[in-house]
Each structure stands twice: as structure tokens, then as C-alpha cells.
């Protein structure tokens, strides 16, 4: 399986660990990456808000740089990059005028892009749906049993439409983490936005949003929150301390990438998985996992029916 790889700006800074561990996981799973040569920033949410056409042209340059024959699919590990690449491709396909204008702009740099040529994928999507849970299971050398991992998807994996998972009730990461053997509670806030750039604009607003998410995870006794987007990771990790001082709380929830915990289950050395890059320490989580009795795959006894209790409706099959 060979894909184009679009690391995104965060990979060079804040989310270095995500980029590195993704490459490690990919290698283990037999996914081959071809990094786009001389890629540029996707413009995040900022460029689109101010000037639409240059914003599309900015993203389209990346698509144009891909050799579509060789790698007709591009992977973005960052949700914002993923949505921008996907949106640009789709809107160019849908609106003829936009397609023409973007291509006129690209021509100024001797490039061109035909919409539909390159399909944009999120790394989580590729791992779960192209590689598949069965193949992941085969690569596992140890289970993550004993750890309560709360999957947090953020906003873009299922939105605005026709993305790889449900906009309100995504399941991909839940299934992945369950495959790895972890306890995965049903986190009701898993698609609530992390606040994005609000940390830069209004501390009050962003800390309120982050506190909500952390509280939700805390109530589920999370050993860690698992993410697939550098922005989510940054906000929840770097501002956790600020949340604690603003709300007099004491959350100590490490925010880790799904690629990092996959590495654990694949038997990679925690050192190389760069958990120490997180501001909130992952030490407690790792210790808990190491000391968890392998046999303690808590044999949940079937709870006896409380004779007073009313039956619960079944959950909808996903």
C-alpha cells in the first residue's frame, strides 16, 4: 500500500511525536509513504476566512505536486489538513468556475490539478479501513488491557459531510482501541470541538471548552485521552494546566496520539514512542499498564438483572 504523505506544519513542531510514530506504525503495517516534495501549509481555518480563492490555490498546490499515477491517495495525519485537502478537491470538482480559477492560479506556477485525481484520507481512516482491525491485531505483541483510553475525535473526522466516520457518533477509533485491548468507554463528548484557534483569541472561551472535555474524560476515569489531530492534542495538553488553575481542578490526563498507543501494543519501546513530549506526563499511565496483571483482563461477570430496574434499549449497531 503506497500513499502520498502530507505531514502538515505541526509535524515539524508541536506534533513531531505524531509524525514520527505514525511513520513507525506505517512501517510495521506495511504502509508506504511518499512525502510530497516541497509541500506548503494548508492554511488551517484562517486562510479560508479571509480570502477564498488564494486559500483554495494554496491547498491545490499540494495536490498538484502529487504524482497521481503513482499515489492516487494522500494521507494527512492532521484533521485540519485532511479536511482542507478534501474540501478543495471536492469543491473544485463541484464548481466548474472555481476549478478554472484555481487552475489559472496554479498555471502561474506551472502546475495544474484535475479534481478527483487524488483522494484525501485521514491517517486513522487508512489504518482502520485500508489496513483493517484484523491486520492490526496480527501485529500486536501485547494487549493494552488495564488501561482506560478515552477516544477523542474532535470535529473534522466526520464533518461536515461524507467523511470517513459518523459526524455525531464516530466508531473508528473506539473499535481500534478495543482491538488493542484497552477499556474504551462511550465518551459522549468525542466530537465536541476542542476550540481550535480560540486559545489564541479568548482564553476564557477556550478554557471553558477544554474544561468540559477534560471533565468528561475524567468522569470516565481516563488513563489517557487518545487523539488523531495535532490541534486537539495541543489544546488539551498544553492548556490543561491553565484549565486547572482557572477552574481549581486537578486534571492530569495525558493526551496521546493513537499512533503512540498502537506502538505500545506493537511492542515498541515507550522511549521511542516519545510519550515524554507531552506536557502532561504519561508516566502514570505507562506504569499502570506495565504493572497491570496480564491475567487481570477483568473477567466481567454478567451483571445480574436488578429486579426493579427497567430494561435498557439496545444501542444501535454501527
Amino acid at each position: 500500500m503506497k500513499y502520498a504523505w502530507y505531514p502538515g506544519c505541526s509535524a515539524e513542531g508541536n506534533s513531531f511525536a505524531y509524525d514520527e510514530t505514525s511513520r513507525m506504525i506505517a512501517e510495521a503495517l506495511g504502509i508506504e509513504f511518499q512525502e510530497i516534495d516541497d509541500w506548503n501549509c494548508c492554511g488551517a481555518t484562517e486562510y479560508f476566512s479571509v480570502n477564498q480563492l488564494p486559500a483554495y490555490a494554496l491547498v491545490a498546490r499540494n495536490l498538484a505536486l502529487i504524482n497521481a499515477e503513482e499515489t492516487p491517495q494522500v494521507i494527512a495525519p492532521c484533521s485540519a489538513c485532511y479536511i482542507n485537502l478534501k474540501k478543495t478537491d471536492e469543491k473544485m470538482a463541484k464548481y466548474e468556475q472555481l476549478n478554472t480559477e484555481v487552475n489559472v492560479a496554479l498555471a502561474a506556477g506551472n502546475l495544474s490539478y484535475e479534481p478527483g485525481a487524488v483522494k484525501s484520507r485521514h491517517f486513522l481512516d487508512v489504518v482502520c479501513n485500508d489496513v483493517g482491525y484484523e491486520a492490526v491485531k496480527e501485529k500486536m505483541t501485547q494487549s493494552l488491557a488495564g488501561l482506560t483510553l478515552v477516544p477523542y475525535y474532535g470535529c473534522y473526522m466526520g464533518r461536515p459531510e461524507d467523511n470517513f466516520d459518523h459526524p455525531e457518533r464516530p466508531q473508528t477509533m473506539d473499535t481500534l482501541l478495543k482491538t488493542l485491548g484497552a477499556d474504551v468507554p462511550d465518551y459522549s463528548l468525542k466530537t465536541i470541538c476542542c476550540g481550535g484557534h480560540m486559545t489564541q483569541l479568548s482564553a476564557e472561551a477556550s478554557l471553558r471548552i477544554l474544561r468540559h472535555l477534560l471533565e468528561g474524560a475524567n468522569q470516565l476515569n481516563a488513563d489517557a485521552m487518545v487523539v488523531g489531530c495535532p490541534m486537539c492534542q495541543l489544546n488539551l495538553d498544553a492548556y490543561q494546566k491553565d484549565v486547572n488553575s482557572a477552574y481549581k481542578t486537578n486534571y492530569q490526563i495525558p493526551i496521546v496520539y493513537f499512533s503512540q498507543v498502537m506502538g505500545l501494543a506493537f511492542g515498541m519501546d515507550p522511549e521511542t514512542l516519545m510519550f515524554e513530549r507531552g506536557i502532561v506526563s504519561s508516566k502514570a499511565m505507562l506504569e499502570k499498564w506495565l504493572t497491570a496483571e496480564p491475567a487481570s483482563k477483568k473477567r466481567r461477570r454478567r451483571e445480574k438483572r436488578d429486579k426493579n430496574a427497567l430494561p435498557m434499549p439496545k444501542q444501535l449497531e454501527s
Partner: peptide, 20 residues
């Protein structure tokens, strides 16, 4: 990190601004 072909990107963005 500055990209290698900054001239190309600027040309594209300038053109886009011009027609947009």
C-alpha cells in the same frame, strides 16, 4: 522552515488574488 520553491507559491497566490 521555508519551502524551497517559494517563488512558485507566491506566483500562484498572487495570481489567485488577482482573479479572486
Amino acid at each position: 522552515k521555508r519551502i524551497k520553491n517559494m517563488g512558485q507559491l507566491r506566483a500562484i497566490l498572487d495570481k489567485a488574488k488577482e482573479i479572486g
